[in-house]
Nucleic acid binder design. Structure first.
Lengths: 217, 217
DNA sequence: ATGCGTATAATTGTATACATTAATCCAAAA
DNA sequence: TTTTGGATTAATGTATACAATTATACGCAT
């Protein structure tokens, strides 16, 4: 018998709020109070509180005396995030190559195709989502819980700033090529190559992001 | 006017449960149900639920159909934790050296003294706590939120296995010496040295832990 | 014996009332 | 004008009742 597993209200509220923060519906500095969210979302405080606490733990919001304030990330944060990813994300690709399954490979290939599709449409919003999905999926397919749990929150935090770094058309072309190379290494089961290509890929992304950040002030 | 800020029941419950899991009061596999905890702790389900959700996010427990099950960590987890720490913990020491304050230095020095005091008493339980405190404090004093948030959960997860690695007396002596060297580098403001000493320290700890784990089966 | 289905019990999910705490505002005094 | 005190308001913290779900036990048919 198939199990239904309706997602709980708390999960739905969390997903919605996380997405709204990432996409800028609630910009940095916005104050979220439980009561306002009760009105807006039409559910009771209980699931809302649970969602807020999870967002708090991910450092997307923080208590501020009066309600929860939506946090931004500083240049220092971004620097640290990319430095950590530069050191760790290669491990994810390494184990993804080691533990890959046919199903996982198919999933990953689908991402590769979508990324080229959205690029041909110049759809930056979906490009951002797909880029994130690519890196999240590799973490997941690595089958290494600790690595996944360490990296995924960092991916979440950079999402808001990813779109800006995608306005550079040349970087987009390079990104797609780098993803493709990483995919090929994983598909070939060459863990060491996947690892070093990934580290280099993050390094490139970091340089591009920080440069953009400096130029935009 | 001084602010009081009594910690909430939810915080207290979280701290207690986290500590009980870390110290083995609730061993791996133990099932925690909200109702049992209500009886044991004498508070309502609301703060208990909040605490459980936070423990879940730290991967110390997981939902299991019937209640929440206390998770252990596998050898793979331990390997990943120490590999990640090996790559990142140096950054924490680096920034701790850069951003150090007199007060912070005093705090850190106090830890150094306590560690030698407890060693002279052969008090392994406190040694474990102090070791953890040392690394947590450096993360905190680095003033780099992302680095702190990335490392602290990893420290929590290894606590349970730290005591075992402290049964090696020679390792304890080395550990104290390594901590002292890291402290001196930070106090001297030599960020690069603090970073490399820390990386080496974690490498040593990793080797010792994995070896112990193999020997004990 | 074994598998199936239903009744029952146990557990979590949600809403809400009440308690407590913290922020705000305004009036009065320095 | 600034500050201070307290009343008021608004927010979160906590407990609890009720709903929905899931596990379990048991009887029945095969």
């Amino acid at each position: 018998m198939r199990e239904f597993h309706t997602t709980s209200l708390a999960d739905q509220v969390f997903d919605k709020l996380e997405n709204d923060i990432i996409t800028g519906v609630y910009p940095k500095g916005e104050i979220l109070t439980e009561l306002k969210l009760v009105e807006q979302l039409g559910v009771s405080r209980t699931p809302i509180r649970e969602a807020l606490r999870r967002l708090e733990q991910e450092r997307l919001i923080a208590e501020s005396g009066k309600g929860s304030v939506v946090l931004g990330i500083t240049e220092e944060d971004l620097e640290d995030i990319m430095n950590i990813r530069e050191h760790i994300e290669g491990l994810a690709s390494y184990y993804a190559a080691v533990n890959m399954t046919p199903d996982g490979l198919k999933e990953l290939e689908h991402i590769m195709d979508l990324q080229e599709f959205y690029f041909s449409k110049h759809d930056l919003e979906h490009m951002r989502q797909i880029d994130d999905k690519f890196h999240d999926l590799i973490c997941q397919l690595s089958k290494r819980t600790v690595i996944n749990d360490t990296l995924v929150p960092l991916h979440r935090k950079t999402q808001r700033y990813r779109k800006k770094s995608m306005e550079n058309d040349q970087r987009l072309v390079n990104m797609i090529a780098e993803h493709r190379n990483i995919f090929n290494a994983i598909a070939a089961g060459d863990a060491a190559l996947a690892e070093s290509l990934t580290a280099q890929h993050i390094r490139n992304a970091k340089l591009n992001m920080l440069e953009r950040l400096k130029n935009n002030g």
